[in-house]
Nucleic acid binder design. Structure first.
Lengths: 339, 339
DNA sequence: GTGAAAGCGCTAACAT
DNA sequence: ATGTTAGCGCTTTCAC
């Protein structure tokens, strides 16, 4: 299993009657007498020569590739993250090695260690690793940045959207609508954002006297669908979901039961995936500033790779709440009953 | 910008008092005296040594990385493809370089050529390249397999779901429900599957005397939403979409207009993305046998990389139609009017 | 401006 | 079973 016999720099050098150094210089844009350069280029063209990036990598000590680790490739939310970062990377002539680390189903730490042998840096999106693992990983992986998991106190470079703030805004909005009994459908316990969001819900409860509860759900549509009945057992007037996927699953179940959204019950998600706007009723949610976060993550990684010491002060980009049709005033009398 | 001074095989060899060859043997699982092996392993452990994959790649002529080119990372349909192939690749100790080639917005050919310098093979998903480009690419890229675009007549390895067959089944089903005026919302003209699907619709029309028309749409939810009104101008009783995303966008618009699905009009998609089951009404669609196609694609690529000549006879995996609530009997009298 | 030669970290003959 | 050594394809001093 060897790569098929491509032509090497030596073939080009011989064909052009120059040294390999000259060929190398032509391809890296250094000054070379024009007639020589032309001969090199035409020889390279005929031979279909392309520099072997592995050899280049060996001497430069760089792969010009970074690893991207996400919990779920099929979640459009992460898909858009990949888009943003890959586009940015590409303009800097980097490529993206994508690896999936589904919660619990895989060893995220090992995945990263393996990836690390092949890349110049890694970006961890919404990592579910333990703090210890993350610290260890950071000491092994030269250039690591953690996205949507605040790890500054672990001295690991990171940039995250302000998940607490968005959820607080959402809660405040629901309170203004008269909701007094909220249930939060929780994401994975190991998710930092989940912690932030639930904290925000609790904070809103304490601040306003609103009853708040939570039920474990997960992060997929199926999970939302499955957790709905448990959530309803608290007789809430509004449901808050860890992410939009969950919320969509909840809406499906609510429809099935015959509950009218938002008349009987309100529901809101988080992330603003493209579907959110197009379901019926359209889903109230909060934007997650993917581009802003993605760009910051990339420039942090670039800085790390350039050897710049980690910048301690990073602003948390904040998402806006997007009010659509799935939320409305709390039902006037009794909390909803799913009989 | 150089990788930070990792320890090399030589450091380990010196620390363990053996030759570099022995260290190499220990790591590749060859027979080595146990006491030596132990010394090597502990030295490696202390030094945090990990073999440099670039150097390994240079000597083996392999990167153990393959490129995956998809039209849209944020489309869950492609996300699931990535999952299937990445999982398969991983068990064979390969990693996946993901690149996006959005229709028209990028030069897919150049993307592939660039990718090719870094990988041992590439899998092209739903490629929108021209035939010429594809043939050229195939001659440059050692190991290429094209997924969901049948290219056997171009002598390019490929595996595709039987898009014609699924769409035919869907049409037959709608005809049985009494539909006599169908509109197909078209995907990108450069998509092979789009051609197959539209051909199937036309075929069904010719076979049964049903009126069929098409409108250009695209491949995103937004595209479906935007194309709905044009589709309705044909007064169809049922709508067929290039993919589920489009169908979801259509449903959104239909709801907005106040049309009752499936009483006033039926709508079906293709791909069976997870959302399809959970929208209201749930979406009739056809499965796309991602796992089957993905697995076949991987094993074809593996065969190519091993130098096995390309197998001409490949079965097209076929998807099943999934009947849900978005389709029903044709309205008894007049075709729908969106007044 | 150009070439000769060393060497990036590793593996695979080839000796022993 | 282990060590020595010659490269893999490229870039980069260092002479010229």
């Amino acid at each position: 299993m060897r790569r098929t016999g491509r032509s090497t720099i030596r073939h080009v050098a011989e064909a052009a009657g120059v040294s390999t150094a000259t060929v190398s210089r032509v391809f890296s844009g250094q000054r070379v007498r024009t007639d020589l350069a032309d001969r090199v280029r035409s020889a390279a063209g005929e031979l279909g020569y392309q520099p072997n990036s592995t050899a280049q990598g060996l001497v430069s000590g760089l792969t010009r590739t970074v690893g991207l680790v996400v919990p779920d490739v099929a979640n459009p939310y992460f898909g858009e993250f990949i888009q943003v970062i890959a586009a940015e990377a590409r303009r800097d002539d980097f490529r993206i090695l994508v690896a999936e680390a589904p919660a619990d189903k895989s060893n995220e730490f090992e995945t990263c260690m393996d990836l690390n042998r092949h890349v110049d840096g890694v970006i961890l999106i919404a990592s579910r690793m333990t703090d210890d693992e993350l610290v260890t990983l950071n000491s092994r992986v030269g250039n690591l940045v953690s996205v949507n998991r605040n790890t500054t106190e672990l001295r690991v470079a990171s940039v995250s959207a302000d998940a607490f703030r968005s959820m607080s805004d959402l809660c405040a909005y629901l309170c203004r609508l008269g909701h007094e009994n909220l249930v939060y459908l929780s994401g994975p316990a190991s998710s930092w954002q989940n912690g932030q969001r639930w904290a925000a819900v609790q904070d809103a409860g304490g601040r306003s006297g609103v009853t708040v509860n939570w039920v474990p759900a997960g992060e997929s549509i199926e999970d939302g669908y499955a957790a709905t009945d448990a959530a309803l057992s608290f007789k809430p007037t509004a449901l808050l979901a860890f992410n939009d996927l969950l919320a969509l699953g909840v809406m499906s179940r609510l429809n099935e039961i015959g509950l009218n959204i938002p008349v009987d019950i309100s529901i809101a998600g988080t992330d603003d995936i493209p579907f959110a706007r197009y379901v019926s009723p359209s889903l109230t949610t909060t934007t997650s500033p993917r581009s802003e976060v993605g760009l910051q993550a990339w420039s942090q990684l670039l800085a790390l790779m350039a050897g710049t010491p980690l910048n301690e002060e990073v602003e948390m980009p904040i998402g806006k709440i997007i009010i659509r049709q799935s939320t409305g005033p709390a039902p006037s009398r009794e909390p909803v009953d799913s009989n």
